[in-house]
Amino acid sequence: MSKQTSRAGDRIFSTTALMAGVLILVVLFSVAVFLLIQALPAFFADPSEITGGEGFWSYIWPIIVGTVIAAAIALILATPVALGVALFISHYAPRRLSQGLGYVIDLLAAIPSVIYGVWGITFLAVQLEPMYEWLAEYAGWIPIFAGPASATGKTMLTAGIVLAVMILPIITSISREIFLQTPKLHEEAALALGATRWEMIRMTVIPFGRPGVISAVMLGLGRALGETMAVALVLSTGPLILSLIQTGNSTIAAEIALNYPEAYGLRLAELIAAGLLLFIITLAVNMVARWVITRNKDFSGANA
């Protein structure tokens, strides 16, 4: 046998791994190319032919802003709760309770988004409506709470809250896994110095879990950005407005979902161009997340 002969198993495995890797790139690339080709007409069409009649960019930017606002509301509401629940499960709850809670959280992630949407319009929007009235009356001087409040409760804030509930499980369950992986050695080092449980968590669990938590939040953000059904159902879409408690605003995903069935020709190209921009936004978000994670590599704990 010559030295170069490698075993069949090794060869099969490395080929499979290579093909799987290439496949992902091919799929991603073809999606990008498809979106680009289909979207091109929208970029070069005469401004007056585009919906709104003022060109593609003035059509698209309000819904981009809407998308970002909805996702931001969702993240701002969901992240602290998710981290709190994850820490409670991993470090505070008695073992039996933490297992049960873990299952419940995972179950939440399995509920289809239509259900969240229906829950959003039939229950949450109705419940929130009086609160919006109150906000409009007493906090109306803050531009985002400017009145008159929507009578149905189907507003940007409701959509953001529904999205927050939807991304809560994924952030929670990933963060919980990460927190549980904190080396016992480091936790004990902190405790042995006389740290309380919270100080121990601050010194070891959180710094150790930081990159993982950022990934979890980014996954949640990805879901919030791309979520169609819940937003399409909950939000009564309209032009971009600053107030979160009035009817109005829209997101890319909702725009596509609501208009795609009747679209053809240039309108179709517009919607696909909107999809392309969503694709780019998500990509950018992920790249920023990766950059944040690698920026502090020396202190990340990966080299412990």
Binding site: A189, M203, F208, S300
Partner: peptide
């Protein structure tokens, strides 16, 4: 206390 395996905090 000093432990069996050195355990400085890696993030510090």
């Amino acid at each position: 206390m000093v432990f069996q395996r050195p355990n400085p905090f890696p993030t510090m």
